[in-house]
Design a protein around this nucleic acid. Sequence first.
DNA 1: GTGGTCTAGACCACT
DNA 2: GTGGTCTAGACCACG
Lengths: 120, 120, 120, 120
Amino acid sequence: MKWEFDNDRPIYVQIVEQLKIRIITHTYPPGSKLPSVRDLSMETKVNPNTMQKALGELESAGLIYTQRTNGKYVTDDVHIISKEKEALIEEYMQAFLQDMTRLELTTEEIISYIRKEEKQ
Amino acid sequence: MKWEFDNDRPIYVQIVEQLKIRIITHTYPPGSKLPSVRDLSMETKVNPNTMQKALGELESAGLIYTQRTNGKYVTDDVHIISKEKEALIEEYMQAFLQDMTRLELTTEEIISYIRKEEKQ
Amino acid sequence: MKWEFDNDRPIYVQIVEQLKIRIITHTYPPGSKLPSVRDLSMETKVNPNTMQKALGELESAGLIYTQRTNGKYVTDDVHIISKEKEALIEEYMQAFLQDMTRLELTTEEIISYIRKEEKQ
Amino acid sequence: MKWEFDNDRPIYVQIVEQLKIRIITHTYPPGSKLPSVRDLSMETKVNPNTMQKALGELESAGLIYTQRTNGKYVTDDVHIISKEKEALIEEYMQAFLQDMTRLELTTEEIISYIRKEEKQ
DNA sequence: GTGGTCTAGACCACT
DNA sequence: GTGGTCTAGACCACG
């Protein structure tokens, strides 16, 4: 996955999202060491403080933890990770279905749309 | 539909969204007269300037037009409206499917989730 | 209460603490408006970013909330506030008692120490 | 007592604390020989430099002394030890009472809390 | 070399 | 005038 940001949402929020996905999909496996803050900020071409802020959010969400002076690690509590995944899916799903319902689409219409998109 | 706003997006954007939906779903039918800016801002408890800005956006999208001295009306061009509807659905759909793909869900998994949500 | 910081803990942590206490003791009553970030940072002679960080922590703890472009307010959910108070007391208490226990003081010794301090 | 460290304070500080307590409570009796730096650092799974630093602090506090080529010993000056104990108690006590006072608890409330904790 | 903190200062969107 | 974000750059403690 590339590091590309759009301009209408804070960069740090987008970083949080993408790191979350990497963790959830085990691109960064449980217990693995993250690149250093400096390296990550170089890679994303973002100020170290911005990266720090993003990582702080992940840490308070319990998805990563910091070993003093030694780096940051993905939590090895797979339970937290899979729970986060469920929560994320649920969140996207509900927002989406609410939007669709407002537009007065039935479940079957939604599904047929999805199948149509799939074929493209 | 109620007028409820969340705090992390501009209010006027949220107003635009909701008015769009009212127009698309014919809650405000094609050609009908909109409530006055003053009434709308009262109803939504929003600064009249904010409401004005939102209506400006709708107008430049061609969904409403202003009759000088007489108020604002929903366009009676049903074609524009239905096109807007398609565009909205497409937009939501693609964003949603992209999110789901990032989370490595297959089409069938997505659909089964949707059916599950439906039953709740 | 004055704004004085010691050098062995991050300033923003100390700000969080002191603001928490002001909220818990209703020096800043539930629902009241906080001074602006700028004013608070002037008052404490601290960089606005530092103050912002502290306020961010309070916000994610649910003790304050932000009204877009209008300022920050103490939550009016007194339940959250009193719960936070209990939690804080509990936290201090347990840490203290653990320390005392390690030093092999009995409960009665602790209490007699406290009474002695009180008289001074 | 186990060797467990939290991540938000320097490890060497925590080691100093815990060794101090062992000395004060005569777990390491006055005049007794301490385990070697190497053993201590193995036991605590800590870098020998870190352990060395901690022991250095204890030495300059006068709680231990080094016998050249022969290891480190707890001071046999019981006076120093008991004074250190008083100092520690006093320090914890004052910090605790100050915190409680800020939270506007009276002495009697504090004591009743302590008794309540005791029963648990 | 690691993360953590802080300052200074700027720009932005919103109301 | 409000909060929010971001950059640049510095310094620190730790191991």
